[in-house]
Amino acid sequence: MVTFTKDSEKEIIIKQYWPQIGRAASGYENRSALSDELAQEMALSVWRSLDRFNGQCSINTYVYRVIHNTAIDHIRRHSKLSEDELSDKTICEHTSPEADALQAQRQKHLMNAVNKLPLSLRQVMLLKLEDLNNVEISDVLGISEANVGIRLHRAKEQLTKLLAGMN
């Protein structure tokens, strides 16, 4: 059974999952300052939750589960702020005149489109974008595979419309 009790082991896990944590934070929170705070909260939650990991599922599933539930907690606590607030403003703020900014612009569009998805669809979309398969997503979110399939289908449909609307 794999356990993570030493700080050095936890540090390695945090480093390993930090890119995913950062992206998930941006997916749930598009206001830059709050997104950074959420990423830190997620890292802290993963750190603290690793004590309780006892091999009940894969470490990948466990970490994603912690990350996504921390996001729910964040939404719960920051409810006074509208989720869609500033989303359009952010697109304008991040427009760069540089040629290589096209990629950054597309990433920003994608992030804003993901941010606009309803919570239930956003969760599956964020996990799918991280290359998790449907079985893993159902493990992380605690829903059936069939439900994952339905939500993913709807999420893709809405994302296509949102991206088309932005282009």
Binding site: W18, G22, A39, A43, W47, A104, L129
Partner: peptide
């Protein structure tokens, strides 16, 4: 979707947090 996924995963990384500071804050 794969293209979107790689676009998503290529986003700029945030700077790694200092865990000791976060734990102190908690």
């Amino acid at each position: 979707f794969e293209q979107l996924s790689s676009l998503w995963q290529s986003t700029e990384q945030k700077s790694l947090p200092h865990m000791d500071k976060l734990i102190k804050r908690h």
